[in-house]
């Protein structure tokens, strides 16, 4: 079954999505994880501040700071199912839906992209997590995005 397993998508900025398909009778149970970095403490004020309470980041000497980002996870579970054409005997109709799943209780559609074995959900492409590298590559991109964000702020 082409859907079973874990798929990883990235919004290009601060959020990675991991969705895992498990068989559940005629449909799928899908666990959706949203992963993002959050700074452990508030950023320091870019121009310093007179009010230490606003600024609880880890301060070193000489107004230098260490910022630690912690990966956070929001999880939820939903379902996906094959779409049954109105006329099941019509091969053309069946063909039309062969790469689509009704997702999240019918709220959206998953499209399976044959040519590169990816999923398309809400404008985001998901790659099959064939090795931990797929996830780690995205984590690196998310870390870069955070570094750039800090460079812009400070």
């Amino acid at each position: 079954n082409k859907y079973l397993g874990t798929w990883v998508g990235y919004d290009g900025n601060n959020v990675m999505y991991r969705i895992t398909f498990q068989e559940n009778g005629k449909e799928y149970m899908v666990t959706e994880d949203k992963l993002f970095y959050k700074s452990e403490k508030n950023y320091p004020s870019p121009h310093g501040t007179l009010f230490p309470s606003i600024d609880d980041s880890v301060k070193q000497t000489n107004n230098t700071y260490n910022i630690n980002f912690i990966l956070q996870k929001d999880s939820r579970t939903t379902t996906a199912r094959e779409i049954t054409p109105q006329n099941e005997k019509d091969d053309k109709e069946k063909d039309k839906y062969k790469n689509q799943l009704s997702y999240d209780e019918g709220r959206t559609i998953i499209r399976y992209i044959e040519k590169d074995n990816t999923l398309l959900i809400n404008g985001i492409r998901y790659k099959k997590e064939t090795s931990p590298d797929v996830t780690n590559d995205i984590l690196k991109q998310m870390q870069n995005a955070k570094r750039i964000e800090l460079e812009t702020k400070f």
Binding site: P46, H47, G48, T64, Y65, N66, I67, L71, Q143, K146
Partner: peptide
């Protein structure tokens, strides 16, 4: 303000 070090904690994945 100088950002001296940026660290990332991914322990949630392990």
């Amino acid at each position: 303000v100088i950002i001296d070090k940026i660290t990332f904690d991914d322990s949630i994945l392990t």
